[in-house]
């Protein structure tokens, strides 16, 4: 993404551990609705949001999967994570949704520099 207003939203917190995932994804959706080019990067616990088998009615809380599914409707096509994040939480790629793209942690500094703006949740 080379556009001067490109935004990277980094998600580092798991779906039900806090509201950071939801509020981070909401920010990405609003940015996309305003026509801003947006990508998401899921790091560490945040990669738990990429599991395809997440329940739709998790214990008393609003499920996050439908929100993640909405990203595509808003033309947010790039959901990134790092191989190191998956290794750290013990998630094999077979458990992930199909639209995830992978990055090596050592490529992160260069990756971040592609974006005009970054928001870290």
């Amino acid at each position: 993404m080379a556009e001067s207003n490109s935004l990277l939203v980094i998600i580092r917190h798991a779906p039900y551990g806090s509201n950071l995932l939801r509020e981070g994804v909401d920010t990405a959706l609003v940015a996309a609705a305003f026509g801003q080019p947006v990508d998401l990067l899921f790091l560490g616990q945040g990669a738990m949001a990429l599991l395809k088998e997440q329940g739709s009615g998790a214990p008393g809380q609003k499920a996050s999967l439908p929100t993640i599914d909405m990203l595509e409707m808003y033309d947010i096509e790039h959901l990134w994570t790092t191989e190191e994040s998956l290794a750290a939480i013990g998630v094999p790629t077979s458990m992930l949704r199909n639209d995830v793209q992978f990055l090596k942690a050592k490529a992160m500094p260069g990756f971040l520099q592609q974006y005009a703006q970054i928001l870290n949740f």
Partner: peptide, 15 residues
């Protein structure tokens, strides 16, 4: 913290 580990992966050579 996770925050520290993630930051270390993100810091570039001139950061």
């Amino acid at each position: 913290s996770d925050a520290a580990h993630q930051m270390q992966q993100a810091v570039g050579e001139e950061d």
